[in-house]
Amino acid sequence: MLCISIKEFLLWKKKQLSKGGDQQSFAVLLDCLGGISINDQNFMSLNPEGKLYLKKNLNYLGSIWDNHLLDSQPIQYLCGITFWRNLKLKVSNKVLIPRSETELIVDIVLNKFGKKSEKFFFAELGTGSGAISIALALAYPLSNGIATDIDQDALEVAIENYRNASKQSNLDFFCGNWWDPLESLRGKLDFAISNPPYIPKDTYEKLPKEVKNFEPKVALLGGEDGLKHIREIIQNAPLFLKEKGWLILENHFDQGEKVKQLLLKNKFTSIEIIKDLSGIGRFTIGRYK
């Protein structure tokens, strides 16, 4: 640990932010690599005469920040870590960086299924870093889940995150495309969740370079209209859900009504389009019969 004065640190921080970038990314850098929690960062200015301890020296932290500014690579990839809900997750360019709005998908499940003493069986299709499934496995220790991903490298990241986050054994991981790894589980799921690739092709081409140049295309691009994977998931969901089982999907901001129609066409009921904190219809859910 390196000890420096808070006054020196605040001067250095001001200099780094003057180069560009945003406060949130800089806070992630300091937390992940510097060892200074976001709470500690917020209270520093109240005691500028104090001392603080760093895991890495200022020159090293500054060089990472410079790399981030130079090519717009997400700070989470440079640090190899991101924070999501109450989880600290490993990330690499093999997985999408889990977004804060996706945290609400866990809250949707909590609202539907209630207490942690509940026992159910769920699957997440396209788990990526494992964020959603891990959060649910921790919230419902008496339940069991399956997390799938088409990319074995992504799955290894998710497995490591689960091992780091929990000593439980209520979450299993399988490699394969959407429902393919779950053939032996037909008719057994209480609910299934997916945050699939849903970006339409034209929109994908216009994404910011920090997304398009670094995050995995396979986790973003949803075909010409963005609904390619959502269609497949919905069409096959009735084979795997129990009667009255739920399907919970994240979709693009303007896809809610189209996803609703796909659910109706496949005999889902109790369909809702749920808005995120920005008032966007980010999630569409339905119950099978």
Rank of each mutant, 00 (worst) to 15 (best):
A135S: 12
L125Y: 01
Y162I: 03
D107A: 13
D71P: 03
N170V: 01
N57D: 14
G126T: 12
E124Q: 12
I146R: 01
V157H: 01
L138M: 13
I108G: 07
F122D: 12
S143V: 00
D71T: 06
E160A: 13
L87A: 00
K88Q: 07
I105W: 13
A154H: 03
R163A: 00
L142A: 08
N170Y: 07
A139H: 01
F122M: 12
K116H: 10
I132M: 15
L142G: 03
L138H: 07
K55N: 14
A139Y: 03
L69M: 11
Y140H: 00
D71N: 12
T82M: 05
F122L: 15
S169T: 01
S72T: 13
Y53V: 13
N59E: 03
Y162R: 06
E103S: 15
S129P: 04
K112P: 07
L155E: 00
L58W: 05
A158N: 05
I159L: 04
A137L: 10
E101I: 08
N170R: 13
Y162L: 09
S166M: 05
L54P: 15
T102E: 12
W65F: 03
Y162V: 01
A158M: 08
S100H: 14
K55I: 15
S63L: 10
D107H: 10
G130D: 00
W65N: 01
G145H: 06
E156V: 04
Q73Y: 07
L110Y: 09
L142Q: 08
A147P: 08
S92E: 12
D71Q: 02
K119F: 12
I97P: 02
A137W: 08
N164M: 03
S169F: 01
L142V: 04
E124H: 06
C79P: 10
E124V: 13
I75A: 09
I159S: 08
S169H: 02
S169G: 05
G130M: 02
F113A: 05
D107T: 11
I105F: 08
A137I: 12
W65G: 03
K51S: 14
D151P: 00
V91N: 05
S63M: 07
N144I: 15
I108D: 14
Q152E: 00
L89G: 13
E118G: 06
I132T: 12
I134Q: 02
N86E: 11
Q76F: 12
V109A: 09
I132L: 15
S169P: 02
N161D: 08
V91Q: 00
A131D: 06
G80E: 13
L52E: 07
S129G: 11
V106W: 15
F113R: 07
W84H: 06
N93G: 14
S169I: 01
I134H: 10
